[in-house]
């Protein structure tokens, strides 16, 4: 374990407890990190291939992807189905091994500093994976213990986060299988927040939520950034959500980053270069189309933008 660039793990408190406190220390630290040049997440020329059968050529699910997230940033990943978003997320949280490249989280190497890195990250995926016969509280208390929270704190924090997400006390003791998909998804979000991750990986967290729940979750994500010093990677198919939440967006196509910029930057680019309306939808359609003649132009442009 390296001790040279120890990241400051968040104080073990869920965001809800300290809702509206603008933290100057967060900003300070962000400036600090920017100065020392330690990004919250560094994905450096990462490639992952899957072999789908004997004799068939391997599929490059993620192909030479590089990303750099500063602390406190919300980075959106857009792309069509099968473009490699979830694979990228899995690579970052160590559920898949890298074929090529390297990943650093707050300066810690994903493979070398495995345990330290694991403590800093958590993930919410599209499917709410739980022991469905157990209650939200039982599932969350399991997660809390795995991350070293003591039982009492774990339970209190879990209740607070669940309540904040609209899951009342009478629900927390009943089996998860009796909940709707959207409610299960909220419990999944609560599970991730419970461990106070410094880097939160959200893989389509709002897919399947009703409009109000969606707004609630989005509000919560914003709140996480401002009051909780979390850095977030967010994949979504909801372009309005991406626009609302993301500081920067990378568009993936066939495992490659074909465009990366701020939401406004992408809109401007698609209008100027491709004579399209200045919307994220137009950007999505343009860059995730299958013709990729000038596929790296936006990436190059975005570099001189920031």
């Amino acid at each position: 374990m390296t001790t040279t660039t120890t990241p400051q793990p968040n104080t073990r408190r869920p965001a809800v407890v300290s809702s509206a406190r603008p933290s100057t220390s967060t900003v300070d630290r962000r400036i600090d990190d920017a100065r020392t040049g330690v990004p919250a997440l560094l994905v450096d020329h990462v490639t992952k291939r899957f072999t789908l059968g004997r004799g068939r050529p391997p599929v490059s699910a993620v192909d030479d992807v590089s990303l750099r997230l500063e602390r406190g940033e919300i980075h959106g990943i857009l792309g069509a189905n099968g473009s490699g978003k979830s694979t990228l997320i899995r690579l970052i949280c160590g559920l898949l091994t890298l074929d090529e490249g390297r990943v650093e989280i707050f300066g810690l190497d994903l493979e070398r500093d495995e345990m330290a890195v694991k403590r800093l990250i958590n993930r919410v995926s599209v499917d709410a994976a739980f022991f469905k016969k157990l209650s939200p509280l039982e599932n969350l208390s399991f997660a809390a213990r795995l991350y070293g929270l003591d039982a009492g704190t774990g339970k209190r924090d879990a209740m607070a986060i669940l309540a904040r997400l609209g899951i009342g006390e009478k629900r927390v003791g009943r089996p998860i299988e009796q909940m709707s998909r959207g409610m299960q998804q909220k419990v999944a979000i609560a599970r991730a927040l419970l461990t106070s991750p410094s880097l939160l990986l959200l893989d389509e967290p709002t897919t399947g939520l009703d409009p109000r729940s969606k707004l609630e979750v989005q509000g919560f994500i914003e709140e996480l950034r401002t009051t909780h010093d979390a850095t977030i990677v967010l994949t979504t198919h909801d372009l309005a959500e991406a626009e609302r939440l993301c500081d920067r967006i990378s568009i993936l196509n066939d495992g490659r980053v074909v465009a990366a910029s701020t939401p406004d930057g992408l809109k401007r680019l698609v209008a100027e270069r491709h004579d399209q309306p200045a919307t994220l939808e137009a950007a999505f359609m343009t860059w995730t189309g299958r013709s990729l003649d000038d596929d790296l132009e936006a990436e190059e442009d975005s570099d001189d933008e920031d």
Partner: peptide, 9 residues
């Protein structure tokens, strides 16, 4: 849930 268990420190 195994993915989550394997992600835990």
């Amino acid at each position: 849930t195994l993915e989550y268990t394997f992600m835990a420190p």
